[in-house]
Simulated assay, not measured.
Amino acid sequence: MFTGIIEALGEVKGVEREGDNLHFTISSPFTDELQIDQSVAHNGTCLTVVKIDGDEYVVTAIDETIIRTNVGELASGDKVNLERCMIMGGRLDGHIVQGHVDMVGEVTDVKEEDGSWRVYVKHEVTKVDEGYVTVPKGSITVNGVSLTVVDSSPGHFSVAIIPYTWEHTNFHTFKAGTKVNLEFDIIGKYVARMAAINQTPSAS
């Protein structure tokens, strides 16, 4: 479980394919605090630490993860947003984030707005009962960052980025066409699914 508050920017040091899997070597400022089997969110994708060597560690993405996220596009030198799993009893500064990416969206525009930035994202429109929708002032996770939705319409939304977030995440690399990991609000997904079940006619 995560909060969507990014701890650090990591750097991809190497990518190795083994069958359908990809092994990523990552350097981070908190590698010395990690342990084997620990969960770390990479651009919002929960991956397990399988090896630690100095200030670098290795995580593995299986085919299902590669298909549903943007990790397959990572290359040496790329920056990734990192967050370790939350500690029970601590403050939940963002919102409840599972680290289970729902789909990949695409940045359509980035606009500077007198000290902040507005990022516009489009995504696949799915059935409403799947809960992959946004609402104004609701929560959305983009590349692992907990954000508040500004504008929302079917298949599109925008978020406002403050300077700190812009500088301390990989958002400053965003441009039109950038693929981003999206995790929709878990509460919204449950509500949508329950509403759909309640509207389903019962068998006579």
Rank of each mutant, 00 (worst) to 15 (best):
I36H: 04
T69Y: 04
S152R: 00
N21Y: 11
R68F: 03
T141Q: 10
E83W: 13
H95D: 10
L82A: 11
K189M: 02
T141M: 08
G10H: 03
T178F: 12
I36G: 02
G131M: 07
G77H: 11
V150T: 03
V128E: 13
V107R: 12
C46G: 05
V180W: 06
H123P: 00
E112Y: 04
S146D: 01
T134Y: 06
T126L: 11
K137S: 04
S202Q: 09
V49D: 10
N170V: 11
L74V: 06
F2K: 04
A176E: 14
S39G: 13
K79P: 00
V50A: 14
F30G: 02
N143P: 03
K127T: 02
G105A: 07
T134E: 01
V135G: 01
S152Y: 02
S202Y: 07
H123D: 00
N198C: 07
H172W: 06
A176D: 10
P163N: 02
F174H: 10
G99K: 12
E7G: 11
S27N: 10
S139C: 04
G188F: 04
P154E: 06
V142W: 05
D102M: 08
E18G: 01
Q98M: 12
A75F: 09
N170E: 08
L22Y: 14
E130T: 03
G19L: 12
A41N: 08
P29I: 09
S153R: 09
G177N: 13
G19D: 07
V104H: 06
S27A: 13
D102A: 08
A203W: 06
V142H: 12
T25V: 00
E124L: 07
E113G: 01
V97T: 08
T45E: 04
G90T: 14
L34A: 07
N143W: 02
R68N: 09
Y190V: 00
Y57G: 00
S146C: 08
F171K: 06
V107G: 04
E33H: 07
H95Q: 10
S202W: 08
V142G: 02
T108N: 05
A176H: 05
Y120P: 01
F30K: 12
D185H: 05
G94V: 05
G188N: 06
T178Y: 13
M1F: 12
H42E: 06
I197A: 11
I26V: 14
E130D: 04
L9N: 12
G131C: 09
L22K: 15
E113W: 01
A160R: 09
D114N: 15
E130P: 00
